[in-house]
Every structure is written in C-alpha cells, then in structure tokens.
Nucleic acid binder design. Structure first.
Lengths: 222, 222
DNA sequence: ACGTATTTTTAGGCTAGTCTAAAAATATTA
DNA sequence: TAATATTTTTAGACTAGCCTAAAAATACGT
C-alpha cells in the first residue's frame, strides 16, 4: 500500500505544492509541465497515478491540488532540501549559488532519522541560505513578513532576507553586486522609464538595480 | 555519449567490482544476480547494456569483469559510500550498524565537488566505521594487512580492525559482545567440534565466539 | 565421453515514465 | 453565441528495468 515514492513522483508533488502555494489555486497541467520541464501528456499520466495513490485531488481539465498526505510529503522534501542546503554552505563552505542543484538530489534520500539528526547537527536552522523558511518535522513553516525590494518606498532602510530565484547565474550576479543576505539597503531613487532603482548597499557603494532583480529580492524594514 | 549512469547501473558496477575483487576471477551472471537480489535474466540484459557502454568486459557464458572506466566508477561509489558512513557515525552519531543502508542511497549523489569537500570536512579519513579502506580521489585503496579472527593462532594478542559483513543484525550482535573496532582480543581456546573459539575481550570478559562470527571479523597482530 | 545437471541466454511480457500526434474539452473573443 | 484559440486528455509508441518460461550452452559425474 504505502510503498515509497520514486524521485519522479516526489518531484511532481513538490512542483504542485509550490504552484498551489504561489497562486492559491489548483495547478494546471501546463504549469506542472513547465515547472518540471516535461510535456503536458506526461503530466496527465502522472496525475492519474498520484490521484490513484490519494496524494492529489485531480479533476480532469480542472487542475490539481495536494491532499493532506501529498502535502506532508511535499513539505518533507522541502525540509530536506533546505536542511541540506544549510549543511552544504555552513559545513562544506559551498556558495549559496552552488547548493540548489546538489540539494535537488539529496532531498530524495529516505531516512527520517537522518533528516532529524542533520537538523540537530546544524543547530535547528530556521532559514536556508536563500532565506527560505525550513519547515519543522511536523511540516510547519515559520513565515516571515517580507516585501519585494521592488515595492519598498524611497529612503526606507531595509535588510535583504531572501531571494525568490535560486539559479546559479542569478545568485552569482547578486554576489558580485554585494547583494547578499543581511546586506542593508536604502533606496535613493526610482526611475520611471525602466522601473530600475538606485540603491545604497551597506552604507558604502551605490548601485543601480534593474526591476527584474528588485522583484527577486525579499527585504525587511529595519 | 557519457551521460550519467542510473543508480541501477551503478549498483551493477559496484557488485561486479566486489565479486571480482573477492575471487580475482570474472563474476558469473548468477553471482551478480545473487548479490543484487535479482534474476539471472535481468542480469544478462543489463550486462549487454553495460558492455555497450564499455564499462564491462562481457563474454557470453564466460562471466564479466570491469573495464578501466567501469572500475573508476565503482571505486568512486565505494569512496562515496564509505565517506558518507564516516559522516553518519562521526558527525551525526549513528551507530555503525545503522549507516550502511543510508549510505547505499547517499553513494549515488553525483557531485565530485561534494565528495571532495566532504572528505576534507571529515579530515581525510582512511577507513570507514567498519574498518574498510576509503579510496582516495584517484581510486587508490590503502589496504591493510589483516587476517580473519578465525585464522589467528592460540594466545596471540590481536586488535579488531574490520568486519566483512555490514548488515544491521550482525553488527548489533557484535556490539552486544563488545566486539567493536579497536577491541583487543586473545584467543584462549579453539573447539574442534564446532570451530568456535574462546576469546578474552579487552583483558576483561571472556566469550565464546562461533566460527561464523570469527570468519567475519578482521584483526591485526599487535 | 556421454548423459545429466547446472548455468546462462533468449523470447516475450509487464510497469513506470517519457514522448508525439490527434481528439476532446474549455476558454476567449468577435 | 458562434467561431476560434488554447489547454488538456487520449492513443499509441518508445526505453529502462524487471520478471517467467523455455531454449541453448557449459560443466560434471560416472
């Protein structure tokens, strides 16, 4: 009955979780296909199998949401992914731009004991290297109130607490600009014509930041 | 051409490596099937595929050996397996009887950078928790001269340096008898009728040890 | 060395997961 | 609301990996 899921099945659950969380609506077949870099027909096949296992609520043509057991598995994957990311940066000194890909593999290791001991070994971190909250062993996230850098009013002092995009090139770029977690920013100017902003970083340099970048950085007011 | 191998393919290479190492002869289809808990027909299928990829030397009806590239992959798997075992015992405080199963999963994580950083993080260990040598990044093993406890003459003082069986129940049993790595033993008596031996452990307790157990423990003379 | 026993391979079939192309359902827009 | 565009599902095919049953090759005992 409850045989372990394949990595493929797990990846579908994780994708559906993220899509539903983002939009608060059922995920469409196409969205899932896009997220997993696969085709709609493959998604339909898999949705039938996952529904059969009661991991998703799937109504033909109407999209998909996770059931409670599906959500438990998805959050466990996210928990493992983020704990491993902390391990890779804090213990093995990887850069935050390198860890996502390796954690994509490590998140599929099946051992609750391992996950829990890893968490303790890392001193129960609450956030991963990108500022994303790490769910506890019951699957509860400790959310933070945070806003996009793009939505911060002029002259407000803020601190970078997260990024919404985890791909290597983007994070490398941020690193180059000194836009790392914990950096203090003040928006000096906002340019209408391209939505870019002029930002002082750590009270030293002042940089122009594109709208695209500003929409991928989460900050908190100090 | 050189696309990454599946975990299944990797497991076949590892099994062939171990079988060939043990006997110094080509591994038979049946032996591989036995080692991987699968059927001979499945093995034949896989051998064809691995030969196609130049990872094994396979002659129909004549058994199989690894090519040099096959051996490189197999030793890399063993390296990863054993490094992860050290991590699990030394950093996460798992017992030596618990780590094999988890390391079976972790050994398939693909990232050389990860393996090498893990090795450094663990201070370049030379042996895993069961006393098996950990190959370096070039695949070279640092072998030890060691003998089976079963082959040690009477009244010789020896120290346990390894075990040849890694399954949980066996290791738990050894643990109970205080037969752990580093324990000092002196064989007091050897019983003809069942090949069992009487052994003093750490100069304190004296235990009877079955032939089966004595054949699975490696020792060094002090 | 010849018949029997064992091992290995082949043949054919199954599942998971993928794909393309076509059909069906839903959404959009004039 | 009717025609068109988009999305989703179905149909059918492919690969990897597994299986059983039967055939072929090898090994063994007398």
């Amino acid at each position: 009955m409850n045989q372990p899921l394949s990595s493929t099945e797990e990846n579908y659950l994780k994708a559906i979780f993220k899509l539903c969380e983002q939009s608060d609506k059922p995920a469409s077949t196409n969205d899932v296909a896009l997220a997993l870099n696969t085709r709609a027909a493959s998604v339909t096949d898999m949705l039938k199998r996952l529904a059969e296992k009661s991991l998703i609520n799937y109504v033909k043509y109407k999209g998909v949401t996770l059931t409670s057991s599906g959500r438990t598995i998805a959050t466990s994957l996210i928990r493992k992914h983020r704990l491993w990311e902390v391990f890779l940066t804090d213990k093995l000194n990887f850069g935050w731009e390198e860890v996502h890909e390796i954690a994509e593999q490590l998140e599929h290791i099946k051992s609750n004991e391992l996950t829990n001991r890893l968490e303790a070994f890392l001193n129960f971190p609450k956030y991963d290297p990108h500022g994303d909250p790490i769910p506890d062993s019951d699957g509860n996230f400790q959310y933070r109130q945070q806003v996009l850098l793009a939505d911060v009013p002029l002259h407000t002092e803020v601190i970078i607490v997260g990024v919404s995009e985890h791909e290597t090139p983007f994070l490398q770029y941020l690193e180059k600009l000194n836009l790392i977690l914990g950096a203090k920013l003040v928006i000096q100017e906002s340019f209408e014509y391209d939505q870019s902003i002029l930002v002082t970083i750590n009270q030293s340099t002042t940089q122009n930041i594109s709208a695209k970048v500003a929409k991928n950085i989460y900050v908190q007011k100090i």
